[in-house]
């Protein structure tokens, strides 16, 4: 009893020492960014850099592009993944392992490698679909696959897809109705998680955009530093803040779902 008590107390001390030291290393760069972003810069006096974020046309254009890409990627990812995952569960359960393997592949094939082989595919996309930055949607959907697959998979695992859809089918629902009106409402939090992840990843994406020569938010932030590094730091902090909010909100969506699972 007393050994356990003493151990618990010494563990608590170690815990706080470790967390404070490591925490300091993690907070310092963020704090420095905040101070740095308030410096006087070519655009004006203290804290003027933050105003530039919403005024400079290259930046606002890039924010708009990244926003459009994020929405398109999230929607495209859901359209591609969700029906296929439901289909696999219902009709070809044998293919589940293979699908998981494929979806997790982008973790093994680095983005920088895919870019190298992507030039020819990109030419076709530009010829057939669009030659604007929005063409990045196609590789971005591949990029977010592993994360979104996991989010959707955990959601679908928590409901009985088979019984639900058989019930709906026997009442005369088509496949479209099954997915849109039976499956989707039951896995909203998983869909939300997947969409948030996609948005956060697209907002932080740099590799594809910079090497395929498109201006998304990250590319423009990097280029801006040649003119005004204070603005770049302010923009970095802003985009980081956005990602923090998105992913933090996501972790709450996640815990709420888990809580419900535990009670049911």
């Amino acid at each position: 009893m007393s050994t356990a008590g003493r151990r618990r107390r010494s563990q608590a001390v170690t815990r706080w020492v470790v967390l404070l030291v490591v925490g300091f290393f993690f907070v310092l760069p963020l704090y420095s960014m905040l101070l740095y972003s308030g410096r006087e810069n070519p655009a004006g006096g203290s804290w003027s850099a933050w105003g530039v974020l919403t005024e400079d046309p290259t930046l606002t254009d890039a924010i708009k592009t990244s926003l459009e890409l994020a929405v398109l990627t999230a929607v495209g990812m859901l359209l591609l993944l969700l029906p296929t995952m439901v289909w696999v569960r219902l009709k070809v359960p044998k293919a589940r392992k293979a699908m998981e393997f494929i979806c997790l592949l982008p973790l093994t094939i680095p983005a920088i490698v895919v870019v190298v082989g992507f030039q020819n595919v990109q030419l076709w996309v530009e010829y057939l679909v669009t030659d604007t930055a929005l063409s990045l949607t196609f590789p971005y959907i591949v990029l977010v696959l592993p994360y979104c697959y996991r989010a959707l998979d955990s959601g679908l695992s928590s409901i009985d897809v088979g019984t639900l859809s058989e019930a709906a089918r026997s009442l005369g629902a088509g496949w479209g109705t099954v997915i849109a009106r039976i499956i989707v409402p039951n896995v909203t939090s998983a869909i939300l998680s997947a969409a948030f992840l996609a948005v956060a990843l697209v907002f932080g994406e740099f590799t594809f955009a910079s090497l395929l020569l498109f201006d998304n938010l990250q590319v423009v932030i990097a280029e801006f530093s040649l003119r005004n590094s204070v603005v770049s730091v302010a923009a970095s902090l802003a985009s980081l803040g956005l990602a923090f909010i998105l992913l933090f909100a996501l972790s709450f969506v996640g815990t709420r779902r888990k809580g419900r699972e535990a009670t049911s």
């Binding site: 993690f26 590799t207 590094s229 970095s236 990602a243």
Partner: peptide, 30 residues
């Protein structure tokens, strides 16, 4: 700690580079 780690593990690229430029770069705060 778990959710913060989840967020920070995704933190990379341009924003992370500028975080360190603002900290220990030539004109960094530190």
């Amino acid at each position: 700690v778990a959710s913060l780690s989840g967020v920070l593990a995704q933190f990379g690229g341009v924003t992370l580079a500028f975080a360190f430029i603002a900290t220990v770069g030539r004109e960094g705060v530190v």
